[in-house]
Simulated assay, not measured.
Amino acid sequence: SAEAPPLLPPAVQPPAIAAPLAARAPRWWWLAGLAALLGLILWLALRTSAPALDASKKFWALMLPADRDTLLVIPDNGLVMYQGDLHRVVPLSDYIANRPGVADTPAAALSLAQYGARRYTAMSSVTLAAEMGKLATAAPERYHVRFARDVQLTDFKHDNTVIVGVEQSSPWWALFRNQFNFHIDWDKDAGDFLVLNDHPASGEQAAYPFSWRDPNRRGYALIGFKRNLSGNGHTLLLGGTTSAGTDAAIEFLMNPASMAPLMKQAQRSDGSIGEFEVLLQCVLQANGSTDIQLLGVRIKPP
């Protein structure tokens, strides 16, 4: 009868570990593929954000150059309290001369005395001062912070300036009022604000009223980029109807993603950035965040 085939020697039997290695191989390939995909997503995100970051850097390089002083003018909240107490508006001419009003009543005399001692400002301006300090890398020694009462008219002629607050807290806004389409005006009797739109575009309102009693907690902010009074430098103005509004303006300016479309619109054929205005609406959410909506943009023609 035929002999049975010899058994394979033990040395050539498939090793016991071969099957588990083969089974695990697809998992390693899947992990490697996932890592490659994540790397691609990160690379695309960085490439997409690069133009926005460059646009933001270009804007702040204009405001914080190495060859010119930049002055951050923080708001006078003591002035806000004084005007609110007496329902008075202090015009820029009186503010410059340090004549906020007359002590024609005992209440006015007390408010005047308190005004002189109240060198108060808003926390939002402190935040902006710190953020701009981080950006002033070209010439840190040329970046200065001044209280609104301590600056002079000549500062707005020769320096780059940043004015924080609205005209109620920094009357220096009046120097540039005629250059704006949007205005935030304070009603001294009601204590509310009215945002005026001189030339409404399609979809815009001619006025946006603001009241502290608004249950929707809606506020407004205005940003303007103008030339200084001599025309050889720049002035940035920002302020809101509430501190949340001013915070929203700061958030907009410091966010490259929000600045990039604006810079694209404002950039001229020679690469310079033209004057612009931005009107924002901000709604304070229950979780403490702020919903920011762009209501209007104006770009000055070349």
Rank of each mutant, 00 (worst) to 15 (best):
S289Y: 07
R217A: 07
M132G: 05
L128K: 07
A136G: 08
L135D: 04
A19T: 13
D187T: 02
A35E: 00
I41E: 07
L53F: 08
P6T: 09
R99G: 02
M254K: 08
Q13I: 10
L79Q: 03
F147H: 14
V164N: 06
F156G: 02
N98F: 02
T121W: 11
T241H: 01
G133P: 01
A109M: 10
L92N: 09
E275A: 15
A52G: 15
I223N: 03
A55I: 00
R217E: 04
S269C: 00
Y220W: 04
A174V: 01
V297S: 04
A266I: 08
M123T: 12
A248M: 05
P6Q: 13
I41G: 03
A97G: 07
P91I: 02
R27E: 13
Q114D: 12
S49M: 11
Y143R: 07
Q293W: 04
G191E: 05
I273P: 06
A36N: 06
P20D: 06
A257F: 01
P75Y: 02
S272R: 14
G288S: 09
A201N: 11
I41C: 10
K157N: 09
D192V: 02
R218L: 13
K58P: 00
N216A: 15
L71Q: 12
A206I: 02
S93C: 00
A130H: 10
L280G: 08
S93K: 14
S211K: 05
R218N: 08
T137V: 14
F182W: 03
S111Q: 15
D150S: 14
L64D: 08
G116N: 12
L40D: 00
L72F: 03
P106Y: 10
A190E: 11
P200D: 05
P209D: 05
D150K: 03
A248T: 04
D247T: 09
V90F: 03
V102G: 07
P200R: 09
A103C: 10
A207S: 13
G240R: 05
V283L: 09
R142K: 15
P209L: 09
W60D: 01
V166Q: 02
S269R: 15
N98G: 05
F210D: 02
S49F: 01
A35T: 11
R68G: 00
A32E: 11
Q205F: 08
N160S: 08
T121K: 03
K58Q: 14
G84P: 00
P5I: 03
R298E: 03
M132S: 07
T161P: 00
D214S: 06
M81Q: 14
T70M: 04
D189I: 11
T290S: 13
A201V: 05
L236T: 08
F193Y: 15
R47F: 05
A19N: 11
P10A: 14
P171E: 03
W172T: 11
N232S: 13
V73W: 09
R68F: 00
N232G: 07
S111M: 12
A36K: 08
A109S: 13
R146P: 00
G288H: 11
V162A: 13
M254Y: 02
A207G: 03
G84L: 06
P215W: 09
D189L: 13
